[in-house]
Simulated assay, not measured.
Amino acid sequence: MCGRYSEAKELAELAERFDLELEDGEDYQTTYNASPGSVLPVITNTDPKHLTFMKWWLLPHWSKTREFRYETFNAKAEELTWKPSFRSLLTTKRCLVPATGFYEWKDITPVEKDMFGQVITKPKRKKEREIYFINLKKEHIFSFAGLWDEWVDPQSGEVIRTFSVITTAANELVKPIHPDRMPIILPREAEKYWLDTGLSQAEVLNLLQPYEASLMQSQPLKAIDCFPV
């Protein structure tokens, strides 16, 4: 999964990295703690030259209410072609999610055994976890593959824009920290294709691969007083 990430770079750096056109007085604040429910910048296929600010937790356009009923801040790559929240977005509403790194929590709880040496599957001891910051070795700014949607309030006409970060199986670097999932990081040369709505569904799905582990790095964060977990 991907539940926290960092996009702490100045606006000018993002503009240069993604070849964006800045608006006068554009309101942008960097954050080391991008979390689900926050309003964050993305780059959409319909407006690839500008940042668009959306809420991180996808609200499907077909939802009857504005309530976020499902855990749609992540979208599993394997489910995109059939899951109702995402299947229509795969070929119509894709986005880049700028980031400088993401966080994962590693379970470091000591194994407990009973008097016979058998592992206790449901120990009473509270789990211990260590936070890791994971980023790329040579790319200070990169992008996650994302999907976005628009929900229109039937009463007021208000438009709510939201997005989801796509995840895949963990690669060899992430697996020892978080065994199951990792966000899909797009290689720089693949970003333009991800925003190209002319691609077939098969071509789009082919872009959704775990990032090369040898190009990534991780480090444990021992003390993060400013990071609420």
Results as ranks from 00 to 15, higher is better:
M1V: 15
C2F: 00
G3V: 03
E7K: 09
A12E: 14
E13S: 09
E16S: 12
D19K: 14
L20P: 02
E21P: 04
E21F: 07
L22G: 07
L22P: 02
L22Q: 13
E26Y: 03
D27L: 14
Y28H: 14
Y28T: 03
Q29H: 00
T30G: 11
Y32A: 11
Y32I: 10
A34Q: 05
G37K: 04
G37R: 07
S38V: 08
V39A: 14
L40Q: 04
L40F: 01
N45H: 01
N45Q: 08
N45A: 05
T46N: 13
D47F: 04
P48W: 04
K49Y: 01
L51K: 01
F53P: 03
L58V: 00
L59E: 11
H61W: 11
R69N: 07
Y70I: 08
Y70Q: 14
E71L: 12
E71R: 08
A75D: 07
A75R: 03
A77G: 03
E78H: 04
E78D: 13
E79N: 14
E79Y: 04
E79D: 15
P84V: 04
S85W: 08
L90K: 05
K93V: 07
K93H: 11
K93F: 01
R94E: 05
R94Q: 01
V97F: 11
P98D: 09
G101C: 00
F102D: 11
F102T: 10
D107T: 07
D107E: 12
T109R: 13
P110E: 06
M115D: 15
Q118I: 02
V119N: 14
V119K: 15
I120N: 03
R125Y: 10
E130D: 01
F133Q: 06
K138V: 09
F142H: 05
S143G: 05
G146D: 03
E150H: 08
E150F: 07
V152S: 08
D153G: 04
D153H: 08
P154E: 09
P154Q: 10
E158I: 06
T162P: 10
S164M: 09
S164D: 07
V165W: 03
V165P: 05
A169N: 06
A170H: 00
N171E: 07
H178V: 00
M182A: 02
M182N: 07
I184K: 05
E189F: 11
E189N: 03
A190E: 13
A190W: 07
Y193F: 15
D196T: 06
T197L: 15
G198P: 00
L199G: 00
L199Y: 06
Q201E: 15
A202R: 13
A202G: 07
E203Q: 15
L205T: 10
L208K: 05
P210W: 07
L215V: 09
L215S: 08
S218W: 09
S218Y: 07
L221V: 13
L221H: 05
F227P: 10
F227M: 14
F227Q: 10
V229H: 14
